[in-house]
Structures are given as structure tokens and as C-alpha cells.
Amino acid sequence: MLEILTSDRIAARHGFFTRKGGASSGIFAGLNCGTGSSDQADVVMINRTRAAAALGVPVTALVTVHQVHSATAVAVTVPLDERPMADALVTATPGLMLAVLTADCQPVLFSDAKAGVIGAAHAGWRGAMDGVLEATLDAMETLGARRADIVAVIGPTISQAAYEVGPEFFERFTDNDRATSRFFAQGRGDRMLFDLPAYGLHRLREAGVGHAEWTGHCTFADAERFYSYRRMTHKGEADYGRLISAIRL
């Protein structure tokens, strides 16, 4: 049985899927939808097919990109034969299911119900800092959306308590903008704790969206429901699964 987290603020059909209800086994146990993982390709396809069916579309209508931690957003009107290198998608075409894959980074789903425009973004710290969220909004506007009418929801992502970083990471942010120091808390020794979802919400609100929220789920803290790259590294495992977050008109 699939477990799908949703937001009452998004009118379009959508879901932040947990790892429950998938066909993968071993370290990937559950709904691993990452074609870039070392999981069996046919099993990953079964999982992606299940996710698409849950939102009422065939897997052929599932559109993803080759995620590269960029600030690139692409508009799509038909299913893609090849995945472009980008980290966000937008569309105004009914029947297409836009999806991003994450395992600690922020999955962000966007909807302008008035204009009939949706979007999905993969926003890790680098993508968020470089402007992938704003790029998604820009791309939605080219299709007729208005920022004041856009709802943006951040799904399961790593929380501040689990996101320990070094001083060079802190300096990368604060050298560019001293005000970003408020997204860091003191950790052990010279370590800092970074609040990725708070930073994402800040960027969204500063960009002028009508509403922005985080579901409040931490990928690192809940191994039964979520995959986590950082938890994988702490445990010394060879690979990790990818969660799928998707939206469709």
C-alpha cells in the first residue's frame, strides 16, 4: 500500500510519496524510484508505474529530468524521449505528471490553480542558493501563472537537527549574504546545523509566492518512511533509494 503525503493548499493532484508500498528490497526496500541507483532497473520501473497509477496516469506520462543541482527549469508540453539536464519542470498540459527525486534535498511542488500551471523542483542547498526555486517561478510565469497565485509546498527533506555542516559551508552562504546566518545554529565544535527547509521557504516568500509551506517531515530521522543520502553515508551503505514527489493537472 503506497503512502502519499499531500497538502490541502495544492488543488492539483499531487503527492510526496514515502518509501512504503514499493517492490524494491534490501537497502532499497520500498518505493525506490531512482533510475540512477544501483537497484534493479525493472523493479524501479515497477515502482514508478505504481506512483504514476496512484495519480491516475500511465507511466509514459511521467516526466522527470536528469538532476544536476542546477538552477535550470524547463517547460514541457509532451512526455520527453530524453531527460534534459535540469532540476525543475513546469507545464500547463493536462495529463502530464511532473516529478522530482530526492533523498534529503527538498522536493518542491508548485501550483497556480487559476492559471492551470504546475511545477516541480529538486532543491538541495546548491540549487536553492543558485536560484532553482525562482527559476521555476519564472518558467511558470511564461505559461501564464502569477506569483501571487502560486502555492509552493516543500516535502520531506533533511531537517536542521540532522544537517551538520562545516565552517566552509557556513562561509559560502554568509560571504554572499550575511543575513543567511540566521539559517544556521551552533553544533559540536566548529560544526554548524543548517536549516534547509527554512532557507527554501525564505527564498520562496522573498520571490513573492502566494503561499509557501513545509510538510514538516525529516528524511534523515524517519528511516521507515524515507530514504536519506546522509543516513546512508553514516551507516556506510553502498547506495540509497530515491523518493518521488509528483504533481499533475
Rank of each mutant, 00 (worst) to 15 (best):
L2V: 14
E3C: 09
E3K: 15
I4N: 09
T6W: 09
S7P: 12
S7R: 01
I10A: 03
A12I: 02
H14Q: 13
R19D: 02
G22Q: 02
S24H: 01
S25R: 15
S25V: 15
F28W: 14
N32Q: 07
T35K: 15
G36E: 03
S38M: 01
D39L: 06
D42T: 10
I46T: 12
A54W: 05
A54R: 09
T60G: 15
A61E: 14
V63S: 01
V65W: 00
V68Y: 02
S70I: 13
L80Q: 12
E82G: 04
E82L: 14
M85L: 13
M85K: 14
L89M: 04
P94V: 02
G95K: 04
L96I: 11
L96Q: 01
M97A: 14
A99N: 04
T102L: 06
C105E: 15
Q106P: 05
F110G: 09
V117M: 00
G119H: 09
A120V: 13
H122F: 14
W125T: 14
V132Q: 04
T136E: 01
D138A: 09
A139T: 05
T142D: 10
T142L: 08
L143G: 01
G144W: 05
G144C: 04
A148G: 15
S159R: 10
S159I: 05
S159E: 06
E164N: 12
G166C: 07
F169K: 11
D175L: 12
R178N: 02
A179R: 15
T180G: 11
S181H: 14
S181P: 03
R182K: 13
R182H: 07
A185M: 11
A185N: 08
Q186M: 07
R188F: 15
M192K: 11
P197Q: 08
Y199R: 00
L201C: 09
H202F: 12
H202T: 01
L204V: 06
L204Y: 07
G208F: 00
G210V: 00
H211W: 09
W214Y: 06
W214E: 11
W214R: 09
H217P: 00
H217C: 10
F220D: 07
D222Y: 04
E224A: 15
K235V: 00
A238R: 13
D239Q: 05
R242D: 10
I247P: 05
R248P: 01
R248K: 12
L249E: 07
